[in-house]
Design a protein around this nucleic acid. Structure first.
Length: 126
DNA sequence: TATTTGATTGTTGGG
DNA sequence: CCCAACAATCAAATA
């Protein structure tokens, strides 16, 4: 995995506050995803299950691809009315990699802003 | 401390 | 109600 080592981008700029009431603890796909973790544990790959849903509150920031899918999914569906979820996703990812960083910029901006918002929520929840 | 890997984010439609 | 592929990103856990 070619990941930039030493990614210590700890820009803790907690200023704005966001009240997270969280009346209904919806575990989205967490429970479902957990099954993979459970399977991994069963195989003995991981010693302990990395339950990440411990802290119930601030949802994670959406990636640029998340915004991209929101913005493009309808267009792709329009061009491919017969395409199902998997087809759309596959094609979507293909075009995502196809577009240049400049095109991804707007989505990255959204992702960046959401990340900032996530930091605020996290800080507020803490 | 650095790397790794699991978990989470969002979409739609179906089982 | 949960999962399917896709990419990105974070955070816990391990080496």
């Amino acid at each position: 995995m070619p990941r930039p080592a030493a990614t210590t981008a700890a820009a803790a700029k907690a200023s704005s506050r966001k009240k997270a009431a969280a009346p209904e603890p919806k575990a989205t796909k967490a429970a479902g995803r957990k099954k993979e973790a459970a399977a991994a544990v069963a195989e003995g790959k991981v010693t302990k299950k990395r339950s990440k849903k411990e802290a119930g509150g601030p949802k994670r920031a959406r990636s640029a691809y998340m915004y991209f899918s929101q913005a493009t999914r309808q267009e792709v569906k329009k061009d491919n009315p017969d395409a199902s979820f998997g087809d759309i996703g596959r094609l979507l990812g293909e075009m995502w990699k196809n577009m240049s960083e400049k095109d991804k910029s707007p989505y990255k901006e959204l992702a960046d802003k959401d990340k900032n918002r996530y930091e605020s929520e996290k800080a507020a929840a803490a």
